[in-house]
């Protein structure tokens, strides 16, 4: 990426037709890549389910029915019932909100903290750069899942702690990328120009440099949303997930996995499929987002 394209992109923002151009680009990306289009549709669908799902489900996701335990899928219970006779379909649908919440908040925290940390380190360098670098090295040197396990085990298995643990293990990715991108641009021509025209350092960092570091981070963002859900699922498998009776895909798969051998496949399969679909969507979305925001691909 050269400075010329960057400056042209920056100045492009001030033209009145910017919105229309962006829309056109969006349409171009969507139509040229059906997979990306599919990902966007799936993502929108998931958000809708998260918003309205709990109002629409046919059964109470927490109500137990003793005479209907472990029944295979039927007309009444589309995804069957679990060991306590709870409706798996309702639980899968209701869990969407919590799972999206976990992944979005975990990723948002690590994105904001990581980007801020990396940007400061990359822009000013010095002792902060060294210190944060060591800090990130330390996190990176842990096997990530084990670190998350340790944090949740130490702090207790609440949703909040799961989110924080996931955020911490993802932090280095953003911080690294932000630092690299910022330090490349620190002395770029347009930044020098902004400096000469009297902008404060913070202003330059916030408004001139940071926006340009977003594209590479966007891709990471959606990938990590998928990982966040998988991470929560893994924690559930070793007993450190969200507390029952809360419906969450990870814990449903983790508990259901023990029923595969005994033939009750629906317990793990449906939440597993939902989880897979979500992770899948986020991953595909990552590629789509890159196409969308990558200036190199704007022609």
């Amino acid at each position: 990426m050269t400075d010329a394209t960057l400056t042209s992109q920056l100045t492009a923002g001030s033209r009145p037709s910017a919105f229309a151009r962006n829309l056109a680009h969006f349409r171009y990306v969507m139509t040229s890549n059906p997979v990306t289009f599919l990902a966007f549709v799936l993502c929108a669908g998931m958000i809708l389910v998260a918003l309205f799902g709990p109002m629409l489900v046919p059964h109470d996701p927490l109500a137990t029915l003793s005479d209907k335990a472990l029944k295979p899928p039927s007309w009444d219970h589309w995804f069957g019932t679990d060991q306590l006779g709870r409706d798996v379909f309702s639980r899968v649908v209701v869990a969407t909100r919590l799972d999206l919440l976990i992944s979005v908040s975990a990723v948002a925290i690590s994105f904001v903290c990581g980007a801020a940390m990396g940007a400061c380190a990359g822009y000013w360098g010095g002792w902060f750069d060294k210190l944060s670098g060591r800090f990130l090295d330390t996190i990176m040197a842990f096997p990530l899942f084990v670190l998350a396990m340790g944090i949740v085990a130490a702090a207790g298995n609440t949703i909040q702690n799961i989110v924080i643990a996931t955020a911490i293990i993802n932090l280095p990715f953003y911080a690294r990328v932000a630092r690299a991108e910022v330090s490349i641009r620190r002395n770029a021509g347009y930044v020098q120009a902004a400096r000469l025209s009297g902008n404060s350092e913070l202003r330059i960092l916030m408004f001139k440099i940071l926006p340009n570091t977003l594209p590479p981070m966007m891709v990471q963002l959606s990938l990590n949303m998928g990982w966040a859900i998988l991470n929560a699922a893994g924690l559930s498998f070793i007993g450190l997930g969200v507390r029952p009776p809360t419906a969450e895909w990870g814990i449903m798969v983790a508990e259901g996995a023990n029923y595969i051998i005994s033939g009750e496949w629906w317990l793990a399969l449906f939440p597993g499929a939902a989880l897979m679909l979500a992770v899948f969507t986020f991953n595909l979305l990552g590629d789509g987002l890159r196409d969308l925001v990558d200036p190199q691909r704007r022609t």
């Binding site: 996995a257 793990a268 597993g272 989880l275 679909l277 899948f280 991953n283 595909l284």
Partner: peptide
């Protein structure tokens, strides 16, 4: 697209689930 689909599917399931 197919390559992308295959590898993404692989990473979309929790490992313990795939294992079992």
């Amino acid at each position: 697209q197919v390559c992308r689909f295959i590898v993404t599917a692989g990473v979309s399931l929790p490992t313990f689930f795939t294992g079992l």
